[in-house]
């Protein structure tokens, strides 16, 4: 593409405003759709792994050490390296990239779910058990709704990381928003490279906004009311847990 200036920002603006880049199977909307498709697939797989595991460990307290060290190891893995490793070991196509992204998404989701269950006031759980709720009822009716704030925080952090990192799919198959980055680098098209980066950032912000809304509406009003009455100790303890969980997952 020919630009009217050598200035990076002018080139970026021209690339972004070119109607040709906004249509067809190689256009920005299509790429966004592909990108979000991979994000969705990755999150489905990551949630399927992390949610049951996190709930089990959080509720029973069994395997806590395993989770903490496992999450640490997973976090240390370089995603792009995993894409190539999986591609070499197993198959070509997008699946190695998706699994590499799953490895990226599992740690924040897992620690978020686990921290969510742990953040629920033990007194409330004890009271629920004393009243005759079964363990399953305690998990689904007490720990899940009360830990949801922290849990969704973990999921949100995971989604954000996957949105930003799903560009690696482009290395395996010419799909998703990563294509603009790969092409931009290869053909030395800075407008495309930086324009693509801006689109990714915008998508990430939009997705995060949707998640924030979801988080807001999914939480019981009882958990976000401002307290006119003096806060109990358990309350401030819960908020510390929230803070640490969110700090640990972003």
């Amino acid at each position: 593409m020919d630009y009217s200036s050598s200035n990076l920002f002018v080139q970026m603006g021209e690339w972004l405003s070119d109607p040709e880049n906004w249509s067809g199977s190689r256009g920005i909307p299509m790429r966004i759709a592909e990108h979000l498709g991979y994000v969705g697939l990755t999150m489905l797989l990551a949630l399927a792994i992390a949610v049951p595991l996190g709930l089990y460990v959080g509720h029973t307290g069994k395997g806590r050490v395993l989770i903490v060290s496992g999450v640490g190891i997973l976090r240390a893995l370089p995603t792009l390296g995993m894409v190539f490793l999986f591609a070499l070991l197993f198959s070509r196509g997008v699946l190695p990239a998706v699994w590499a992204l799953v490895l990226l998404a599992v740690p924040p989701v897992l620690s978020g779910i686990y921290a969510g269950v742990s953040s629920v006031n033990r007194t409330v759980v004890d009271a629920a058990r004393s009243m005759g709720l079964t363990e399953w009822q305690i998990l689904t009716r007490v720990e899940l709704p009360n830990g949801l704030q922290v849990m969704l925080g973990g999921v949100r952090a995971g989604v954000l990381q996957v949105v930003a990192t799903a560009t690696v799919v482009a290395y395996a198959k010419a799909d998703g928003l990563g294509v603009f980055l790969v092409e931009g680098t290869q053909i030395n098209d800075n407008g495309r490279l930086f324009g693509g980066a801006v689109v990714i950032a915008a998508v990430a912000i939009a997705v995060d906004g949707v998640m924030a809304l979801l988080q807001r509406f999914a939480i019981s009003p009882g958990l976000r009311t401002t307290r006119p009455v003096a806060r109990s100790q358990q309350e401030s303890g819960r908020q510390e847990a929230v803070a640490s969980a969110q700090g640990g997952t972003t």
């Binding site: 409330v124 004890d126 004393s130």
Partner: peptide
């Protein structure tokens, strides 16, 4: 255990009410 507990009322020191329910 669960049925036995339902057959008795239980009140504890801190109310132990579920914060997410009215």
């Amino acid at each position: 255990a669960a049925e036995l507990r339902r057959s008795m009322g239980y009140v504890m020191q801190s109310s132990g009410l579920m914060p997410h329910r009215t």
